[in-house]
C-alpha cells in the first residue's frame, strides 16, 4: 500500500511527470494524425498562458484571443511584408506580445477580477474590429494574410513541413511547461499564489501586489502571443477569425477541463477538447450544445478538471479493487 503510494507520488513528482508526458506526447505524435497533434500542441501552449492567469493569479480572462492575435499578426506582418525566416517571425511575434502585455498590463491588473474578465473580452472585440475593419489596408481584412509559400525552410527542424513543425511544437511546449514549473518554485510563484489567496496579507508582508500581478500578466500573455505566432507559422496564414471574440471562452474552458493550475492541465485539456471537437462535430454537429453544458457540468460537479478529478477517482478505485482482492483471498 505505502509502496504503491510512494511510487505514485514519485511518478507524479514533476520532473518525472514532464518526462513521462513528453514520452506519451512523442508516442502520440507518431501514432496520431499530424495535423491533429499540431493543433493540440499549439493549443496547449495557448492554454498554458490562461492557466497561469487563472491558477496562479486567480484572474480569469475572456480576452485571450486578443493576445493570441497580437502574436499571430506580428509574425504575419514580418513574414508577409519583411522577411522569410519563420524563426525570426516567431521572435517578432513573441516580442510583439511582450510589448503589448507591457503596455496593456498596467491598466488591467489594477482592476477587480470580475472587471478584469470583462475588460479583456472587450479588448478582444476591439482587436477583432481593428484587424477586420479598421486596418484593412494592412491586415487584408477578412481575406487575411497568406504567406505559406513565402516562408523559407529552416535548418534542423523545417518549420514549413508540418511533420517537423510538430517536433518543434513539442519542444516549445515542453520548454513552456518547464518554465512554469520553475516559476512555481520561485519566490515569485509563491507570491502569485499568495496574492490569489489573500491580497491584504501579501501587502502586509511587504510585497507589491501590483508588480506581482503585472509580471505574471506579462509572462502569461507573452506565452499566449507565442502560441499565436506558432499558429501563424503553422497555417502560413492569419485572419481576424483567429482572434474572434466568439472563441473567447475556449482557453478558459480548456483550462477548466484540464484542471486549473496543474502543469499537465493545458496539454490534457487541449487534447481532450480538440479530440472532442472533432468527434462531436462529426457526430451531432451541435458543438455549442455540448461544450456549453460540459462547461456547466464542470463548474457544478467536477471543478478540479480532468487532471484534478481523475487521479483521486483512480486512487479510490484502486483502493476499492485492492480491498475486493483482499476479501477474495480470505
Amino acid at each position: 500500500m505505502t509502496a504503491a503510494k510512494s511510487l505514485a507520488s514519485r511518478a507524479l513528482s514533476w520532473w518525472w511527470g514532464i518526462a513521462a508526458t513528453l514520452l506519451a506526447t512523442s508516442l502520440c505524435a507518431v501514432l496520431l494524425p499530424t495535423p491533429f497533434m499540431n493543433e493540440v500542441m499549439i493549443f496547449a501552449i495557448y492554454v498554458s498562458g490562461c492557466n497561469f492567469l487563472i491558477g496562479r493569479l486567480g484572474f480569469i480572462s475572456f480576452g485571450q484571443p486578443a493576445y493570441l492575435a497580437i502574436g499571430a499578426y506580428c509574425t504575419a506582418f514580418y513574414l508577409f511584408y519583411v522577411g522569410t525566416n519563420p524563426l525570426v517571425g516567431l521572435g517578432v511575434g513573441v516580442l510583439g506580445g511582450l510589448l503589448g502585455a507591457i503596455i496593456i498590463g498596467p491598466f488591467f491588473v489594477r482592476l477587480r477580477s470580475d472587471y478584469f474578465a470583462m475588460v479583456n473580452l472587450a479588448l478582444a472585440v476591439v482587436l477583432f474590429y481593428v484587424t477586420q475593419k479598421l486596418l484593412v489596408s494592412i491586415t487584408g481584412g477578412d481575406n487575411g494574410l497568406w504567406f505559406l509559400t513565402q516562408m523559407q525552410s529552416t535548418p534542423l527542424l523545417d518549420l514549413t513541413a508540418p511533420a517537423q513543425f510538430l517536433w518543434f511544437a513539442i519542444i516549445v511546449a515542453t520548454a513552456v511547461t518547464v518554465m512554469f514549473k520553475y516559476l512555481d518554485g520561485t519566490i515569485f510563484g509563491a507570491c502569485c499564489l499568495a496574492s490569489r489567496l489573500n491580497e491584504d496579507k501579501l501587502q502586509f508582508i511587504g510585497y507589491d501586489n501590483f508588480k506581482i500581478r503585472l509580471v505574471a500578466f506579462i509572462i502569461a500573455n507573452t506565452v499566449t502571443a507565442l502560441a499565436g505566432a506558432m499558429y501563424a507559422i503553422y497555417f502560413g496564414f492569419v485572419s481576424p477569425e483567429m482572434g474572434s471574440p466568439s472563441r473567447a471562452a475556449e482557453p478558459v474552458i480548456v483550462t477548466l477541463l484540464g484542471g486549473v493550475g496543474t502543469l499537465a492541465g493545458p496539454l490534457i485539456g487541449a487534447f481532450a477538447y480538440t479530440g472532442m471537437k472533432d468527434v462531436i462535430s462529426n457526430l451531432i454537429g451541435n458543438w455549442e450544445l455540448f461544450i456549453g453544458f460540459l462547461l456547466v457540468f464542470i463548474m457544478l460537479v467536477a471543478d478540479q478538471g480532468i487532471w484534478g478529478t481523475l487521479p483521486p477517482a483512480a486512487r479510490a478505485l484502486l483502493v476499492h479493487l485492492r480491498r475486493a482482492a483482499g476479501r477474495a483471498r480470505n
Binding site: I60, F62, S113, D114, A117, A249, V252, I253, L256, N286, W287, E288, L289, F290, I291, G292, F293, L294, L295, V296, I298, M299, L300
Partner: peptide, 22 residues
C-alpha cells in the same frame, strides 16, 4: 466568486445557443 458564475453562465449561454440551433 463572481468569476465562477461568469464561466457557468457562459456555458449556459453556449449550451442555450446549441438548443436554439436544435
Amino acid at each position: 466568486d463572481p468569476t465562477f458564475s461568469m464561466i457557468t453562465s457562459f456555458g449556459l449561454l453556449f449550451g442555450g445557443i446549441g438548443i436554439i440551433k436544435f
